[in-house]
């Protein structure tokens, strides 16, 4: 474990807590894409298949349980909770995420570390995580006023993978054999997708104006 990875995990945890806080306290999911939340639940479900078979550390297991539990409960809130579901703008959140899942699955069947079920699922979860934010970014472009919690949620979600890139660089130089192209390329693509969001988020923070993405 290095400081970059710990910072990344904590940032990721904070993004999930910010979202749960928003949904649980003000019972609203306005501006949040259910499609992205469903994709994240699928990412964690396919990435943590080995949660009960391969024990890495208490920290690792606890964090996996938190990410699994939070992502599925957020999907449940947005689909089932009578108050929360009312604030979900179904008309705007129309990204057909099936067109993200299928290419990632096909790519995982071709590009993986080993052609086994677990390895293909693991590669799939990495490719899917890289593009899972797209429905959310599209929704942000459509909804005019982005509330602070939603902006912070997306920012933290992007920042966590940026920290991970530093973690991979650090591990590459400190650990022999640490070469994992699938993880690195997926993580880089994922972070680049946030680039324009970061740009507008930073400007809105610098000029102290409401975050507003150009249509």
């Amino acid at each position: 474990m290095n400081i970059f990875r710990l910072a990344g995990d904590m940032t990721h945890l904070m993004s999930v807590l910010v979202l749960l806080l928003k949904i649980h306290t003000i019972k609203s999911c306005a501006g949040i894409s259910l499609k992205t939340q469903e994709l994240y639940a699928l990412v964690f479900a396919t990435r943590y298949l080995d949660i009960f078979t391969d024990f890495i550390s208490v920290y690792n297991t606890i964090m996996k349980l938190i990410f699994l539990g939070s992502s599925f409960s957020i999907v449940w809130y947005m689909r089932r909770h009578k108050l929360v579901r009312r604030s979900y703008d179904k008309e705007q959140d129309t990204f057909r995420h099936f067109f993200l899942v299928l290419p990632c699955l096909l790519l995982a069947l071709v590009m993986n570390e080993k052609f086994t079920f677990k390895e293909v699922m693991w590669a799939f979860s990495l490719y899917l995580e890289a593009v899972a934010i797209l429905p959310q970014l599209v929704l942000l472009q459509r909804t005019k006023n982005i509330d602070n919690l939603t902006g912070q949620y997306v920012f933290l979600l992007g920042a966590y993978r940026a920290f991970y890139i530093f973690n991979w660089i650090y591990r590459y130089f400190t650990e022999p054999h640490y070469v994992h192209w699938i993880t690195w390329i997926s993580g880089l693509v994922q972070t680049l997708l946030y680039a324009d969001f970061f740009y507008y988020y930073f400007n809105s923070w610098k000029n102290n104006v409401k975050l507003h993405l150009p249509a």
């Binding site: 990875r5 995990d9 990721h12 080995d50 391969d54 890495i56 550390s57 690792n60 964090m63 996996k64 990410f67 570390e113 693991w122 991970y164 973690n167 054999h177 070469v179 994992h180 993880t183």
Partner: peptide, 10 residues
């Protein structure tokens, strides 16, 4: 053979 990739990251 490269040491098998233990998935120790989240």
């Amino acid at each position: 053979e490269e040491c098998f990739h233990v998935k120790d990251e989240l």
